[in-house]
Amino acid sequence: MAFLLTFLLLAAGVLSCTEAQEAYSKLSEPYRKGVDLALQQVNNSAVQHHFLFFKSLYKSDVYVSFGTSHFYHNFNLKATRCVRGAVNPDPTKCQFRNDRPLLDCVACYNTLDDDIKPDPKPYIHCIHKPSLTPEVKKKRRDHCDGMNHFTGGATLLTHKRQ
C-alpha cells in the first residue's frame, strides 16, 4: 500500500512538472524571454532551491509603433528538487516541491522586434506568495506603468486617455 501511495505521489509530481513545462513552451517568444530573465535572476540569487516556471497569472502587451511593444507578465515560479546551481537541468526531470511557497513574479519590459530592450532596464520582481501584499502589487504596477512611456510624435497617439 505504501509503495502504491509513493508511486502515485511521484507520478503526480512528474505530471505537474510536465504540464508546467508545456505551459512555458506555449508562451510566445517575448513572454518566454521575460520568464527566462526572472529564472536567471532567481536561480542565481541566494535562494536555496532551483525554480522553474509554473503558470501565468496575467499577461498584457501593448504594441506602440515601429516594432516596439511593452510587455507585462505576472506568473508563478515553483521550487523543484533539482540541485540549486545546476547548469541547464532537464526541466522534465525536476520534480516540483509542494513543501515550499510559490514565487509570485512580475516582469515588465520593452521589446523591439521581439528582443528585450536594455533601456529602460527590464523590471523583474519576485516575492514569496505569502509575503505578497496589496502594497507590493501597487508598487509593482506603478513601476511598470512608469516604464510604458515613449517619446516622439508618432507614439503620442498610442497612449490611452485617462
Rank of each mutant, 00 (worst) to 15 (best):
Y109L: 08
K55Q: 15
L77A: 07
P118H: 12
G34D: 02
Q40C: 01
E22Q: 08
L37A: 07
N74H: 08
N43G: 12
K93V: 11
C82R: 03
Y31I: 11
A107K: 04
A20D: 09
L103V: 02
C82P: 06
I124Y: 07
T80W: 01
C105S: 09
N110W: 03
L112A: 09
R100D: 02
Q21Y: 04
Y72H: 06
V87K: 15
V42P: 00
N74G: 03
L27W: 01
A20Q: 10
G34K: 02
V42C: 03
F51I: 08
K121Y: 06
A86L: 12
I124D: 03
E22I: 02
P134C: 04
V47I: 15
R32H: 01
H49V: 11
I127H: 08
L27M: 10
N44P: 00
N74K: 12
F51V: 09
D113W: 13
P30A: 05
V106S: 05
S25M: 12
F51D: 03
D114H: 02
R100T: 10
Q41R: 11
Y123S: 01
Q21P: 05
C82N: 03
K33L: 08
N74D: 10
V62N: 08
E135G: 10
D36G: 03
A107G: 13
G67H: 04
R97C: 14
N43K: 12
R97H: 13
A23P: 02
G85H: 10
D99E: 06
S131R: 15
L103I: 05
V35R: 08
H125P: 05
S131W: 08
I127F: 01
H50P: 05
L39T: 02
P91H: 06
D90T: 11
F54D: 05
T18E: 06
Q41I: 01
D61M: 08
K93M: 10
C105E: 06
V62R: 07
D90Q: 06
V47S: 14
E22V: 02
P91K: 06
K78A: 09
N110G: 12
L77M: 10
V42R: 05
V35K: 10
G85R: 13
L52W: 06
F54N: 04
A20E: 09
V42E: 01
P130F: 11
A79H: 07
K78Y: 00
N88A: 13
P89K: 06
P118E: 13
N98Q: 11
D104L: 09
L57Y: 07
Q48W: 09
F66H: 15
S16I: 15
G34V: 05
I116E: 00
Y31S: 14
N98D: 13
